[in-house]
Every structure is written in C-alpha cells, then in structure tokens.
C-alpha cells in the first residue's frame, strides 16, 4: 500500500469519525471509571432507595440497552404492557440507555422509562459516555453509576459501573465488601458481561485476569447472578454456582437474539427467573 492510499484511507476514517454523533475530544477527556466510582461512593449523589414491595412475593425485570437513537424508538411501550400484565414491581436497566448520549436522546429515554409507570434502577453503559458531558447527564438523571439496593430485606442488587470495560481499583474493593454480606441473595447488575457463551466475542470484560478475579469473587461469596447487557441478545450460562445472564436488549432494532427481558420472581421464600420474549415487530 503506497503512502497516497494510506493518506486516503486515513482521511476516510477521519471523515467517518467526524460525521458520527460522538464527541471524540469529550470521550478522550471524560471522567474515567475510577473518577465516576469515587464520586458515586462519595455520598454527594442521591442514591436510589429501596422500592417498597410485598416482602412475601414480588417480581422485577432486568434488561439492557434501550439504546435510544436518532429515531427515539425502543420496545419500552411493549414492555409497559408486560409490566401491567405481569404485575412487575420494578425494573433494572443495564446501561446503554442511549445510542450517542445526545441531549435529545437523554431526554427521550428518560421520558420513556418514566412512562413505564413503575420504579426503576439504571446503571451506565459505554454508549452513555459518547459525549463529553455523558457522565454529567447520567448522574443528573439517575444518580450514581455504582450503588447497591436491598429489596424487601431479601435481595441485594449491586449495580456496577463497567462502562469502560473494567471495574477499577476502588470499585473492586467496594464490590468485594458488598458481596461479603451473605444475609441477602446478591445479584449484580451491570453493562459488560463476564462470560457469555463459547463463541469468539469482543463484547465481554476485556482482561482475562479481571474476568477470572470477578468470577472467583462471585463463587467465593456465593453470589446468585451477574446480569449484563452490552450484547444485544439473550444468553444464560452457569459457571460453578453463579448464573451469568446477558439479558437481551430493549432497543427496537438491535437485538440479534430473541428480544425480551429477564424476569425475577420472589415467592415462597425462593427466587426464580425466566426469560420473557417480546414479540418482534
């Protein structure tokens, strides 16, 4: 390849990057996961409180990636019918709320989530940081990216910030201290999966050592599940005693598996789960 071709190829890549809605300079200078976690754990942000549910019987849904883009479409209207039909108490969104984190997209997803009509928790995904002020907007709307909630004195939901594809030292320490609390069934809700099947994939937590460390902690402390988004499809793997769910995407077009959501039901002193498919439209 001669230098002229390289120049042309480089120019084409540069033009493509400039034409997208990403704030490239903002991405390069935005707060890192360590910055976001420290702020999230500092107490300066309002942490979402526990939802009031019937402690003997309740259910909640988990899904990822509404990824609202320029057309502002998602499956959340369809999901709203599910919430009403199945009496779902609350839901958790596993990041990538928007496609490019533009102000319009941020406003649109907030409105659509509110319209579902039940309380919800959110954590951050990589797409939510595609503008320089992505973190500012996220915390304005949803609070911290890393927090935990105990539901009905039974289940502890641990929300992790994996939007950078890594946990970082502060979050690792905090995560371990939260996992140690064996009084509750512990479920991790975050954006990146750790394990998601045998196929070659580049959408997992990247570092091999980090994945091994996370899994060894989940096993050691007896966590029930790691729920992730990022990969737009449904997957379930059991690695030792730990369930690894990739929960499907709520985006209108992006789910290349069966579109749907993960439904947890607590009843008769035990927790069960099922994947609920949404009709393709």
């Amino acid at each position: 390849m001669n230098s002229r071709r390289i120049l042309l190829l480089g120019s084409a890549v540069l033009l493509a990057l400039c034409a997208c809605d990403w704030d490239l300079w903002g991405i390069a200078t935005r707060p890192t996961v360590e910055d976001r976690v420290k702020e999230s754990l500092s107490g300066s942000l309002t942490t979402p409180g526990p939802v009031a549910v019937n402690p003997a019987s309740f259910s909640f849904a988990v899904f990822g990636d509404p990824q609202i883009g320029r057309d502002y479409r998602s499956r959340l209207d369809r999901f709203r019918q599910e919430v009403a039909g199945r009496d779902i108490d609350f839901f958790c969104v596993l990041g990538d709320l928007t496609d490019d984190a533009t102000p319009d997209e941020v406003d649109s997803i907030k409105l659509q989530l509110e319209r579902v009509g039940v309380p919800y928790y959110a954590t951050i995904g990589n797409h939510d940081l595609y503008q320089g002020d992505g973190w500012e907007r996220f915390k304005e709307n949803y609070g911290p990216s890393c927090y935990r909630v105990v539901i009905a004195d039974r289940i502890k939901l641990i929300f992790l910030d994996t939007a950078d594809g890594t946990l970082g030292p502060t979050q690792f320490d905090w995560f371990e201290s939260e996992l140690q609390d064996s009084a509750y069934t512990r479920i991790v809700c975050t954006h990146f999966p750790v394990y998601d099947g045998e196929k070659p994939m580049m959408w997992r937590l990247a570092s091999g050592a980090e994945r091994v460390k996370v899994q060894s902690m989940l096993v050691r402390y007896g966590a029930f599940a790691w729920c992730a988004g990022h990969i737009h499809g449904w997957r379930h793997m059991q690695v030792d005693s730990v369930n690894h769910f990739t929960c499907g995407a709520m985006a209108q077009q992006l789910d290349y598996g069966e579109p749907g959501y993960l439904l947890f039901t607590f009843a008769h002193d035990s927790l069960s789960w099922q994947f609920v498919e949404l009709d393709r439209q």
Partner: peptide
Amino acid sequence: TAIVGLSGGIVTFHE
C-alpha cells in the same frame, strides 16, 4: 500494554 473498553471507542491502556 493492553487496552480495555475498546468496545464503542472508549479506550483505556490498562495493563
């Protein structure tokens, strides 16, 4: 060294 978070353009030299 090695990158984490390449997915979607967020790059951190991590290791």
